[in-house]
Design a protein around this nucleic acid. Structure first.
Length: 290
DNA sequence: CACTTGACCTGTCCGC
DNA sequence: TGCGGACAGGTCAAGT
């Protein structure tokens, strides 16, 4: 679920909520992929450190610490990072309603700050993780070395996008835009939404998509991602932001999870669901002809 | 090598 | 009502 817009929404919330706070304790609960280094390492480089900044690269969150270490966090499908309880906000703040509700049985990592507030990493399906790396080594992580350009960076051009994606001429256009080495941050929701926007069938081979269509597709990817960030992301089931709040992009979706409903361009045509690149795929049979 | 499929997990929903 | 199976979807490993 969490794709670029959801992770960016969480990043903005955390940047506002936890920068300047000092870690009092940290522990992982039933999350073997989190803190795989020893407990000693966690306490040495995490406890006592102050949060300097919260960055994002692709779908990965990077929490920089004053110890020159960085928390590297991937939410995968059902991960949440929820911040609770800050005396700075006083009673009535949205966070207050979460006090006492967390931790719950999906809580995998708890980070306690010196002001008694907490950051909870919850993950129903245990695919996500929280790891600690020296800040200088983050760029050497395999994923970081391989991941493609950020679609919302204004230095990124359609010419570069076309060059990158042509390396995947033999596969389907949906598989290609889901490939994080081609482009960072696209997942199943925004793949379907942008392909509908560009009137391209997801199962079309990349080689059969023209440069002009690819340029349109990149514009649509940027459009749906910017709109979603504005709406606080997409909440289907699990996703919430750093304050535990749901996102509303799904209310604006044109095809995603809309099978059997009318295509926004064709009142008499129903959205269909199929399988492309191993994923549930939503299309309009009139807009998107293979 | 290029591409596709399965595994990792748990909760939910559907059909029998 | 209970139960088995399909499905959800990000990424990597294994298979074709």
């Amino acid at each position: 679920m969490p794709e670029l817009p959801e992770v960016e929404t969480v990043r903005r919330g955390l940047q506002r909520l936890i920068v300047g706070k000092t870690v009092a304790s940290a522990r992982a609960i039933d999350s073997p992929k989190s803190f795989p280094n020893s407990d000693d390492d966690v306490s040495a480089f995490l406890v006592g450190a102050t949060i300097l900044a919260v960055r994002r690269r692709a779908k990965v969150l990077l929490v920089d610490l004053s110890s020159d270490y960085t928390l590297v966090i991937h939410l995968k499908m059902t991960g949440q990072l929820v911040y609770v309880g800050d005396r700075r906000f006083g009673a009535g703040h949205p966070n207050d309603s979460l006090i006492g509700k967390l931790p719950d049985r999906s809580t995998r990592v708890v980070i306690e700050f010196t002001d008694d507030s907490h950051l909870y990493f919850n993950d129903q399906r245990k695919f996500g993780w929280v790891k600690l790396y020296p800040t200088a080594e983050v760029t050497n992580i395999d994923f970081m070395k391989r991941v493609g350009p950020e679609p919302l960076e204004n230095t990124f051009t359609s010419k570069q996008f076309i060059q990158h994606i042509r390396r995947r001429n033999g596969t389907t256009i949906k598989a290609a835009i889901l490939d994080q080495t081609v482009l960072a941050g696209v997942g199943n929701i925004y793949a379907d939404e942008s392909l509908w926007g560009a009137r391209i069938h997801p199962a079309t081979r990349v080689r059969d998509v023209s440069d002009e269509q690819l340029s349109t597709l990149l514009d649509e990817i940027k459009y749906v991602m910017n709109l979603s960030i504005e709406k606080g992301g997409s909440t289907d089931k699990n996703y919430v932001d750093a304050e535990g709040k749901r996102g509303s992009y799904i209310d604006f979706a044109r095809v995603f999870r809309r099978e059997g409903l009318a295509c926004p361009r064709h009142p008499d045509v129903l959205i269909e669901k199929s399988r492309v690149a191993g994923r549930g795929t939503h299309t309009c049979p009139v807009c998107q002809v293979q």
